[in-house]
Design a protein around this nucleic acid. Sequence first.
DNA 1: CCCTGATTCGC
DNA 2: GCGAATCAGG
Length: 206
Amino acid sequence: MEWSEEIIAQLKDLWAEGLSTAEIGRRLSITKNAVVGKAHRLGLPPRPSPIRRNGSKPKAAADKAEQPTLIPPTPEAPVSRATAPAPSVAPATQPVAATTAPTPVAAPSPAPATATEAGTVDDKTARKEKAAPITRASAKPKTLLRSISDPEPQKRRGPSCCWPIGDPGTPGFHFCGATPIPGKPYCEEHAQIAYVRLRDRRDSVA
DNA sequence: CCCTGATTCGC
DNA sequence: GCGAATCAGG
């Protein structure tokens, strides 16, 4: 796997957007493991994980007998207690990023009755499609990104596919812009990637 | 069972 | 450095 700067940039972006590792993996046509692994190596901020590994290591780690690592008795007791401190600390402008809604299912398509295509396919499979959690236009207040001609495409003209092309923050970045499928934020091409069947998403992309 | 992310470890 | 295998919680 060649982690080009661009790929890495996309990974970072998607990661920052709160997409699941699997989601990111699908989009980059790689496995979630690759995503997670790379993310860690890149030192990307970990996201809420349900698990905490530590109890046991059936693997070779088993012999990793924990050394009685003398841990200094945390000599620090600076806490003036109470939450009073933090005097001139940041004005609490901490945006906390979009960590809130990883999978908001922002699908603007309210009616699952998209018989158009769903009807034919297996009911379950069809409805199994999950809306890409990508927030419409990964337009993060990246300052420099602002310079893009129009931050709100679908505002003035017809809707356009907002699939990100390139790395947000770099000159070449842009959104797909193609005509989206009615009721969806992406064009047909990207909708296929964005909306994945839960059943056989394993090898979707390709 | 499905999902999820984290860590380990052979490559 | 990479990522499959594995682990582990929801």
